[in-house]
């Protein structure tokens, strides 16, 4: 499956990026495609293009803060989890996505 994801945490210097890394790693292991946008203390990095969002099967929002540009994902299948979940059990998020589809 194809995914796009956004990660974000309150301080925005550690967990945001740990979650992004874990999502990318787990997606590779499970044979999924994923692009992860990070919303940390540096602002938005690796921003998702409209095309990437349009072609994704589902959107993973792993954030403890309100993310910017949430309206970009209106109408998509969304999986919203705390940022910790992406770091600790990223596999379960993809399993959940498979079940939703």
């Amino acid at each position: 499956m194809k995914f796009v994801a956004v990660t974000g945490c309150p301080t925005g210097i550690a967990h945001t990026y740990m979650a992004a890394e874990q999502l990318e790693k787990t997606a590779r292991e499970l044979g999924h495609e994923i692009q992860v946008e990070t919303q940390g203390a540096m602002g938005i990095e690796n921003e998702l293009s409209p095309a990437a969002i349009a072609s994704a099967d589902a959107v993973i929002l792993a954030a403890d803060i309100a993310i910017e540009g949430a309206e970009r994902f209106d109408g998509k299948t969304k999986i919203e989890v705390p940022v910790q979940t992406a770091i600790k059990e990223a596999g379960s998020i993809f399993a959940q996505a498979g079940a939703v589809k």
């Binding site: 945490c9 309150p10 301080t11 925005g12 203390a41 954030a63 403890d64 803060i65 309100a66």
Partner: peptide
Amino acid sequence: HKQYLLTGVSYAVPF
């Protein structure tokens, strides 16, 4: 609401 507060804090911390 916790998410709202944490978002505000995340912007205020550098200040």
